[in-house]
């Protein structure tokens, strides 16, 4: 695999920001009850993370070390406000549903993590691709979670009814648990489990092992 492809595609399965780096979980819980809104969020985050990587990388040789985080933050925050304004102007309905979560992209750890971890050390083009790849990796998980949640919770996908709900005179009693944010924890958990059984290299070393009970196995030395 060439270097560019590696930078772009690695974050999707091999180094997924949510599944392996465990970054950006909060918005994965909050905005995934409806597939359309989730897609808007994914586009917003992907554009913010790739553009912030690009701009941080362009000025990386001039950023003073002491204030580098603040400079990165200023760039990220400006991009987020820009996205929010655009959304309010061109897709008012979903900006109403997303409300604060667009603004909260600023605090999404993926954005800062990539700016600090990658863009500060690499040239603009790979940084942009790295942002794009991480955005896609994030989007992949969000879309999986949202599909499962909207399908089981509301019986629909993109708002189109597939299983007719009891509320609307059908037969399917919507799963209220799937509509609550915490169901995403379970879905993300299962996803991480599946991913790690496929790519066993991602399994972390256990930090602590409980010692075997050695009273029975060891020979007890007689005290003299």
């Amino acid at each position: 695999m060439s270097k560019t492809r590696e930078v772009l595609l690695n974050p999707i399965f091999n180094d997924n920001p949510i599944a392996l780096q465990i970054l950006g979980i909060c918005s994965a819980l909050a905005v995934t009850s409806n597939l359309y809104v989730t897609l808007i969020m994914c586009v917003a985050l992907t554009s913010v993370v790739s553009l912030s990587n690009l701009f941080v990388s362009i000025i990386r040789h001039h950023i003073p070390t002491n204030v580098r985080m603040i400079i990165q933050m200023t760039i990220v925050a400006s991009l987020v406000i820009l996205v929010d304004e655009l959304l309010k102007a061109y897709d008012y309905e979903s900006s109403k549903t997303l409300s604060v979560f667009v603004g909260l992209i600023i605090t999404n750890c993926i954005v800062m993590g990539r700016a600090e971890g990658f863009a500060m050390q690499n040239s603009p083009w790979p940084s942009f691709l790295d942002g794009l790849g991480n955005g896609i990796g994030y989007s992949l998980i969000l879309i999986i979670v949202a599909t499962i949640r909207e399908f089981f919770g509301s019986g629909s996908l993109f708002g189109y009814e597939i299983l007719v709900l009891v509320q609307n005179g059908g037969w399917y009693p919507g799963n209220n648990f799937a509509l609550l944010p915490l169901s995403s924890f379970f879905i993300i958990g299962v996803f991480i489990w599946l991913l790690r059984s496929w790519k066993t290299g991602q399994i972390e070393e256990p930090e602590y092992r409980i010692a075997r009970n050695n009273l029975e196995t060891k020979e007890v030395k007689p005290r003299i």
């Binding site: 950023i63 003073p64 400079i71 925050a77 400006s78 406000i81 820009l82 304004e85």
Partner: peptide
């Protein structure tokens, strides 16, 4: 240099945002 970089980044960003708004 710190002051210069900080101020110019802020200025640049605020111009873009206010134009958009």
């Amino acid at each position: 240099k710190t002051l210069f970089v900080g101020i110019s980044v802020c200025l640049f960003c605020s111009i873009i945002i206010s134009t958009a708004a």
